[in-house]
């Protein structure tokens, strides 16, 4: 049984091993690739924690929406849909970057990464513009429960996207310094996981805001 447990960790075809910096420095247990697996597990767990937070926001949204007689639907600025498009597109480009790196095509990878970063940045700027548009209509955080939730959910999502953007920028810099080789797949892989999740989360929030108006 022990051998099975052990074999299971070895035979997954962990090609390169080493940690996310490509160094063969043991960080626990002698299995190469354990750090890589742990990085993916860790990212999944982080996404689970983020999910719980948004589950809590959702339940607050449903409860608060259900009991109030002061709920006024807000006009969702059309720019939101464009922003969603940008974010969806960036999911495609980061996937391309990941594939390129797996094939060892560094230049292509760097290009796709840069595009993803720009799209992510554009999304955040777009979200800020949406906030400005709402403020111009006189809709602020405390105007109405629906606007409170609008700012809350977009804001909470935006902060998380910003975190992802910082990770992308880090990857960009590494790439720029010729340090983003196939051995650093893990970094890009977990960033991509996170980025796709932010994408899905945004679709979810849009649906919530749209149907819960």
């Amino acid at each position: 049984m022990a051998t099975i447990a052990r074999g299971h960790r070895h035979d997954r075809g962990d090609d390169f091993g080493g940690d996310e910096f490509g160094r063969f420095e043991p960080r626990g247990g002698p299995a190469p690739g354990a750090v890589r697996r742990a990085a993916r597990t860790g990212m999944l767990l982080a996404l689970l924690a983020i999910t719980m937070m948004f589950v809590a926001f959702t339940s607050a949204y449903v409860v608060r929406g259900g009991l109030s007689d002061d709920w006024q639907p807000i006009d969702m600025p059309r720019l939101l849909w464009l922003n969603a498009g940008l974010l969806l597109l960036s999911s495609v480009t980061i996937e391309e970057a990941r594939k390129a790196l797996n094939r060892g095509l560094r230049a292509a990878c760097n290009g796709w990464l840069a595009v993803t970063t720009i799209l992510g940045g554009a999304f955040l700027i777009g979200q800020l513009v949406v906030w400005r548009q709402l403020a111009a209509q006189g809709i602020y955080v405390a105007t109405n429960p629906s606007s409170s939730f609008f700012y809350l959910l977009t804001g909470a999502h935006g902060i998380h996207v910003l975190g992802g953007l910082l990770a992308l920028l880090y990857a960009d810099i590494e790439a720029w310094r010729y340090r983003l080789g196939p051995a650093k797949r893990t970094l890009l892989e977990v960033t991509a996981m996170y980025w796709h999740f932010m994408d899905g989360l945004w679709i979810y929030i849009l649906c919530l805001l749209w149907f819960g108006r």
Partner: peptide, 25 residues
């Protein structure tokens, strides 16, 4: 902890907004 603290964090954000941003959660 992983499943619970995110919920407290969310609740704390809402309470803080009620206090400083004028919302009524």
């Amino acid at each position: 902890g992983l499943l619970a603290f995110g919920v407290l964090l969310a609740a704390g954000v809402l309470l803080l907004m009620d206090r400083i941003a004028g919302t009524s959660f």
